[in-house]
Structures are given as C-alpha cells and as structure tokens.
C-alpha cells in the first residue's frame, strides 16, 4: 500500500495543494490560444504565398511576353516569398520566437501576442507549401474551364481552385496544426506560461517531476486525439458532399 499512498501524496502535492491544477489549465488555455490564432495567421499567409508562387510558376512565360510592370512585380513578390520560406524553414522555431521577443518586438509587453505572431509566421511557411502542392495537383482543365467562362485568374483561384484545394489538403493541414500545437511548447522560452511551462513550474515548486510532466503529456495527447477525431469527421462530411 506504501506505493499507492506515496502516489496519492504526490498527486495531492502536485495538483491539489495551492490549487496547482489551475495553472495547468491556464497553461492549456494559453497553448490553445496561441495555436488557434497562429493557425489562422498561418492559413492566411500560406494561401497568399501559395497563390503568388503558383501564379508565378504558371504564368511567368505569359507575363514575361507581355512584359512590363506586372511581370516585375510578380518576380519581386516571388523572390520575397522564396526568401521567407528559406529563412523560416531553415531556422528553428524557438530561435525565431526568441528573436521576435528579445530583438524585434522589445517594445511589446504581451508575450502571448508575440508568440502568436511568431508561430503564425512559422506555420505560414509550411502551410504555403501544403497549399502550393494542393494547387499544383488541381487539373489544369479546372483553370481553363474557369478562364473560358470569363473569370480572371484570381477569381478562378477563389471560386474554383482554392475550394477544391482546401478539401484536398485538409488532412495534411490538420497534421500541420497538430505539429504546431506541440511546437508551441517552447513558448516558455519567452516567459509565456503555456501548458509545458505550467507543468515545469509545478515541478520547480514541488521538486517532483513525474506527476506534472506525465500530466502535461497526457493533456497534449488528449487534445491531439480529439483534434484528429474532429478532422476525420469533417473530412467525411466534405467527402459525402461529392458522392
């Protein structure tokens, strides 16, 4: 019985005493908050970049022939996008986060906002590649059908291509968000009390590592499993529309 008693003591010490469980849930709240808004930023950036890059890839020849300002603008935009993708994907997210917090946005107090921005910009690069693959995988006939009806390139993208892309990339996109949710666990580096940091703070206070860290892991796992289930459902519903 000694083992169970000590386990119970541990539990009380780490979660019940001083209402420590509350800090875990607050941390979870922060983690979800960062992930949710970062995801929204990521999708927005991702779609914009993917559209710019595929537009350039698909139309460079035509634009070049017509020459002029449009081609030069597209070329500059495309180069900027490539630069962004290279930098973001070539450096660790925790370093990006710290640069944001300690170098660029030193005048901003709210670490949460900085984290949302940093993770959003980071995720945008990965989402952009997911969307780009998605756009490239849409049959060219869809573009041609849209254009032949009189839609311009961006209307064709908006009404015809992107809706199909979203449906196609949803599983991959979801995977990216699950990765992002877990990646936000480094937010503690800039003093944000996210789920991981909350668990770590309890460990520091109680000098007992097992309970808080296992609890943190279990909470992440639960959230990820729930998210995966939700997306499966959504996927099924989207599919059913087509049958």
């Amino acid at each position: 019985m000694g083992f169970f008693n000590s386990l119970k003591d541990e539990f009380v010490l780490n979660f019940i005493e001083k209402g420590r469980w509350k800090s875990l849930f607050k941390g979870l709240g922060n983690t979800l908050l960062i992930t949710l808004f970062a995801v929204i930023i990521g999708i927005a950036i991702g779609i914009i970049i993917a559209v710019i890059r595929t537009t350039y890839d698909k139309n460079a020849e035509t634009l070049k022939k017509n020459g002029g300002v449009k081609y030069r603008i597209m070329k500059v935009l495309n180069t900027l996008c490539n630069l962004y993708l290279t930098v973001v994907r070539g450096t660790p997210v925790v370093v990006q986060l710290m640069i944001f917090y300690f170098v660029i946005f030193t005048f901003v107090d709210n670490g949460l906002i900085i984290a949302i921005l940093a993770f959003g910009l980071n995720s945008g690069a990965y989402v952009a590649e997911i969307f780009r693959g998605g756009i490239m995988s849409i049959d060219n006939g869809q573009f041609e059908a849209g254009r032949s009806l009189g839609f311009n390139y961006f209307q064709t993208m908006r009404y015809i291509v992107i809706p199909q892309v979203i449906k196609n990339v949803l599983p991959t996109l979801c995977n990216e968000f699950i990765v992002l949710l877990k990646e936000t666990s480094v937010a503690g580096y800039v003093g944000i009390a996210d789920l991981t940091k909350a668990g770590d703070l309890i460990r520091g206070a109680t000098f007992s590592a097992f309970m808080p860290l296992i609890a943190v892991a279990l909470i992440y796992l639960t959230v990820v499993v729930i998210l995966t289930k939700l997306v499966k459902k959504l996927e099924m519903r989207l599919r059913r529309d087509e049958r």
Partner: peptide
Amino acid sequence: NKHRQKMGMVFQHFNLFPHMTVLQNMTLA
C-alpha cells in the same frame, strides 16, 4: 476576360467543377 464571357467553350474532359452541384456549376459565372 470580358471577351471570353461571350465565347463559350466545351472541353474534351468536361472540366465540370467537382465541388459544386450541377446547378452551382451553371450559375456561378
């Protein structure tokens, strides 16, 4: 784009929009 509106085109591989119903396909443009 303005001129294409007045030139209908039919393709070998139909190119209907798979994410829309028949009616939506026809009313979008």
